[in-house]
């Protein structure tokens, strides 16, 4: 009887601790988002979307940084999506049991978690140094390199979910393999693949470290990809670390914008995924 009580009490303690750990995790989610809302909403205003980043002590907005972030993310997506999808297709459709496939899969998973600042260093030495200056192209390439492993991984996973009977049916009709992949398996997996792309876009739109050495920052409006370009993450970094109150306010506004965009992308991707799950 005593043993039984002791075991039960021990169990209550563990269950209680586990509950506390979950509450601890969620508390910080609420805490971070709450602080962002509190400090960010007050900083939102019409000038945010009409004016460029100001010198300290005067009014301004973030339009140049918003434009830069959207533009670089777009170019990175245009480079990263086809690259990632084709490499993922190779892993899922052509590399079954091959040594090369195993190596690519392994390296890709490592790149998936590799420190993004290292990617920044890499792009700095292969693009910024030869070009002689920081540029938005370099920033886009750095973001694309971070995006590729995410897209490769989800594309492979999604293509592997497509039932083999579909491929076999198409083969039996005499379709060549490339046509089977493009018109049958891609079509069956398209929602999942798009989910992966959305998650990858969400991942890169908050990345700061790789942009520090590539796109740098720009105080003024610029749409020239050959020059440094302002972008939200680096502006947030500089403004938050500055001693000026109005710069810090803008940093909070930028932080709120990025987080809302990323949460929307994430929730959207999940919604997309569950909707495609329903279709099957």
């Amino acid at each position: 009887m005593q043993l039984y009580t002791r075991r039960r009490i021990g169990n209550y303690v563990v269950v209680g601790l586990s509950l506390a750990a979950t509450a601890f995790g969620l508390l910080f989610l609420v805490f971070v988002l709450g602080t962002l809302l509190k400090n960010g909403i007050g900083a939102l205003g019409p000038t945010l979307f009409t004016q460029a980043t100001p010198p300290p002590g005067s009014q301004g907005g973030l339009i140049n940084a918003i434009f830069g972030s959207v533009a670089m993310t777009l170019i990175a997506t245009l480079i990263g999506t086809p690259t990632g999808i084709l490499a993922g297709t190779f892993l899922a459709e052509y590399a079954h049991g091959s040594r090369l496939g195993e190596i690519v899969r392994f390296i890709n998973d490592i790149l998936l978690s590799a420190p993004s600042i290292i990617i920044g260093l890499f792009v700095y030495s292969v693009l910024v140094v030869p070009m002689g200056h920081f540029s938005a192209w370099a920033g886009s390439v750095a973001l694309a390199i971070i995006m590729i492993p995410v897209v490769v991984r989800t594309t492979e996973d999604m293509l592997n979910l497509v039932p083999n009977s579909l491929r076999e049916a198409a083969t039996a009709l005499g379709a060549p393999k490339w046509k089977i992949v493009v018109t049958v398996t891609y079509r069956a997996a398209v929602q999942g693949m798009l989910t992966g792309v959305l998650l990858a876009v969400a991942r890169i739109s908050g990345e700061t470290a790789p942009l520090l050495f590539t796109a740098l920052n720009n105080q003024f409006w610029s749409a020239d990809f050959n020059r440094p370009m302002a972008n939200l993450p680096v502006v947030i970094f500089q403004f938050a670390m500055s001693p000026y109150a109005d710069w810090q306010t803008l940093a909070w506004a930028g932080a709120l914008l990025i987080t809302v965009a990323i949460l929307f992308l994430n929730v959207g991707a999940r919604f997309f995924a569950s909707w495609s799950g329903l279709q099957k």
């Binding site: 995790g25 969620l26 910080f28 989610l29 805490f31 971070v32 602080t35 962002l36 400090n39 969400a202 991942r203 739109s205 908050g206 990345e207 700061t208 470290a209 993450p233 947030i236 970094f237 938050a240 670390m241 810090q248 940093a251 909070w252 932080a255 990025i258 987080t259 990323i262 949460l263 994430n266």
Partner: peptide
């Protein structure tokens, strides 16, 4: 919700960490 904790970018944790 736990995965959203992973989706919040590093810079947001930074600014929150510095000021809060």
């Amino acid at each position: 919700m736990i995965e959203l904790l992973a989706a919040i970018p590093s810079i947001i944790y930074g600014i929150w960490g510095l000021f809060v």
